[in-house]
Amino acid sequence: MRMLLNIRIPHEPFNNFVREGTVGEVMARILEETKPEAVYFTEQNGTRGAILIVNLNDPSEIPSLAEPWFLKFNADCEFRVVMVPEDLKKAGLETLGWKWK
C-alpha cells in the first residue's frame, strides 16, 4: 500500500547534527534503509520537514519507517494512505455513485 509519510523535524537535535557535519550521513542512512519512492524536503510550521512516499506491505512495517526519525531527530511522523490515478480508477466510483444516490 502506498503511504505518505509526513515528518516534522524540530530544530534540536537536527541543528546539532548540522554543526557536527553528520546530518547528511544520518539522512542518507535513514533513506537508504527505508527506500522511499519519493522524498521532498520542505518547511512545516516554521520547522524542517520531509514528505516521503513509501510502500507498505504490512502494518508491522510502520515502526521501521518511523523509528529512525523518532530516535535520531525527535521528529513527529504521520502516515496517510495515498493513491495514484491508476489506483483511483480501480476504486469503482461509478458503482459507488449509483449505490449511494
Rank of each mutant, 00 (worst) to 15 (best):
R2I: 11
R2E: 07
M3R: 07
L5R: 04
N6A: 12
N6K: 13
R8F: 04
I9L: 06
I9R: 00
P10S: 05
E12A: 04
E12Y: 02
P13D: 03
P13R: 00
N16W: 00
V18K: 01
E20T: 00
E20L: 03
E20D: 04
G21P: 01
T22R: 08
V23G: 00
G24M: 08
V26E: 11
V26R: 11
M27P: 01
A28P: 04
A28N: 14
I30G: 08
I30M: 09
L31P: 05
E32T: 14
E32I: 08
E33Y: 12
T34M: 08
K35Q: 14
K35N: 12
E37T: 13
A38H: 11
Y40V: 10
F41V: 08
T42G: 10
E43H: 08
E43L: 09
E43I: 09
Q44A: 09
Q44W: 06
N45K: 07
N45Y: 07
G46F: 07
G46N: 07
T47N: 10
T47Y: 06
R48I: 01
R48E: 04
R48A: 05
I51A: 04
I51K: 02
I51M: 09
L52A: 04
I53R: 03
N55H: 09
N57Y: 06
N57F: 05
D58K: 12
P59G: 07
P59A: 07
E61N: 10
I62F: 11
I62Y: 07
P63L: 06
P63C: 06
S64F: 08
A66R: 03
E67M: 08
P68F: 02
P68D: 00
P68M: 02
W69P: 02
W69K: 03
W69V: 02
F70R: 02
L71I: 03
K72P: 00
F73K: 01
N74Q: 08
N74G: 03
A75F: 01
C77P: 03
E78C: 01
F79E: 02
F79C: 02
F79W: 03
R80P: 00
V81D: 06
V84P: 00
P85W: 09
P85N: 11
L88Y: 13
L88V: 15
K89N: 13
T95S: 15
T95G: 13
L96Y: 15
G97P: 05
G97N: 14
G97F: 10
W98L: 15
K99S: 14
K99I: 14
W100E: 11
W100F: 15
K101Y: 10
K101N: 13
K101S: 14
